[in-house]
């Protein structure tokens, strides 16, 4: 396990309190949508960076107006087979214009990292004995893409007609 960002293991300043009843004091927290809805004022008054964790059945459009409060939005893959967070990440980045950290959490496996990255995720809580190694293993898997996403990589067809 470990948080990979920019291809390297990085320390995680956030404490995931999304399933905690008691919020730890004095540290940056990642909280659930429900916690945000109920304890918004209290959370803002802490004066600490905040992160929001969304389940795969919670669209980021539900917090479109509040995104400025969050340094991190963590989108959950309850199972790697549940692909809803790919769409959520694209909506969050491409439609809602969120520019902060979009973190993949849950069943985040090596073989899905590339698709996640293309959909706008920029940090990955990877399930692997060596998360950085997992990242490096798949980093060079693809150099050609048929689809454009918000990551700016050109499609095959864009390269074909640029020549």
């Amino acid at each position: 396990m470990g948080l990979v960002r920019g291809g390297s293991l990085v320390p995680d300043p956030f404490t995931d309190a999304s399933s905690l009843g008691e919020l730890p004091a004095g540290v940056p927290l990642i909280i659930s949508l429900e916690q945000w809805q109920v304890r918004r004022d209290e959370l803002l008054a802490r004066g600490q960076p905040l992160g929001l964790r969304l389940r795969s059945d919670q669209s980021p459009t539900r917090i479109a107006d509040d995104l400025a409060h969050f340094a991190v939005v963590a989108l959950e893959f309850p199972k790697y087979r549940d692909g809803r967070a790919y769409t959520h990440a694209r909506i969050l980045k491409e439609r809602l214009g969120y520019t902060g950290e979009i973190r993949a959490v849950g069943d985040v496996l090596q073989e899905q990292l590339h698709f996640m990255q293309r959909c706008g995720f920029n940090s990955f809580d990877v399930v692997a004995p060596d998360a950085e190694q997992a990242w490096r293993t798949v980093a060079g898997d693809h150099t050609v893409w048929y689809q454009a996403t918000g990551d700016g990589r050109p499609r095959a067809l864009d390269r074909r007609h640029r020549r």
Binding site: F115, M116, R118, C119, Y146, Q147, T149, A156
Partner: peptide
């Protein structure tokens, strides 16, 4: 081509 390795729609 659009459907192959679609980053968003590979885990429908």
């Amino acid at each position: 081509q659009w459907s192959i390795l679609h980053p968003e729609f590979s885990y429908l």
